[in-house]
């Protein structure tokens, strides 16, 4: 390996990594929010909406992210949706991740004992407050490991944004490779960055888990 090329390409790779982290963070937050809304709409909405969302979940889960992104970025303009690469990438990540998060939240809701919801109803607490104060906090606790897990999967899905020219780490790595023919070094650096990112998320996740469960499991 010849790591000296990194002196020249290092700053570019770092910028790329910054964009990768940004895309991951924004994509995760947005798709988690959309997933939560989907799960709530499925639980409390009318039957036709539930059916529609079910179809959305199946279609998005059933097609590759790469294809979705192509359709959005290159097919979007045909129906008047003209987006720059970065917004298109974020929208793509949001759409792609939301059904998985929706399913994680749905199982989280299912893990909340019905008796605790009934107790709240018996006291006369309005349904929106029950969701906010009881259902959501308890669902989040049980869903947290799965949420962190899918967030980690999403870190690596960001590399696909390179095909619509989002200048994230993969894109920069490929540029360095084609300009220097240092494929091995470039991909080595790429792997290192991702490993560092995932390790960080996973540690934060475990810490968060310990924090939110400290009262719930007998200590």
């Amino acid at each position: 390996m010849e790591l000296s090329v990194l002196q020249q390409y290092g700053p570019m790779l770092l910028r790329g990594f910054g964009i990768t982290v940004f895309c991951w963070l924004a994509g995760t937050v947005l798709s988690m929010a959309l997933g939560l809304m989907i799960a709530l709409a499925q639980r409390y909405g009318p039957r036709w909406l539930n059916w529609l969302l079910r179809a959305y979940i199946e279609v998005i889960r059933g097609t590759p992210f790469l294809v979705q992104l192509f359709v959005l970025y290159y097919g979007g303009p045909l129906v008047g949706l003209r987006l720059d690469a970065l917004p298109a990438g974020l929208l793509g990540l949001t759409v792609y991740g939301s059904p998985y998060f929706a399913e994680i939240f749905r199982s989280g809701f299912g893990a909340v004992p019905h008796g605790q919801i009934e107790a709240a109803r018996a006291v006369g607490i309005p349904e929106p407050s029950i969701v906010r104060r009881i259902l959501l906090p308890l669902a989040l606790v049980s869903a947290l490991p799965a949420l962190v897990n899918f967030s980690i999967i999403l870190t690596k899905e960001t590399v696909i944004l390179s095909i619509i020219t989002v200048p994230e780490l993969m894109y920069q790595t490929q540029r360095m490779s084609t300009e220097t023919f240092r494929y091995l070094e470039a991909n080595f650096v790429l792997a290192l960055f991702f490993w560092g990112l995932v390790e960080t998320i996973s540690r934060l996740g475990r810490r968060l888990e310990a924090r939110v469960t400290r009262h719930i499991e007998r200590g």
Partner: peptide, 20 residues
């Protein structure tokens, strides 16, 4: 219904306290 339930307290077999 919520107004009427305010006047009716209920205690369950499994307690059903909110654990958080």
């Amino acid at each position: 219904l919520r107004e009427m339930r305010r006047d009716i307290g209920m205690v369950f077999q499994q307690f059903n306290l909110w654990p958080h």
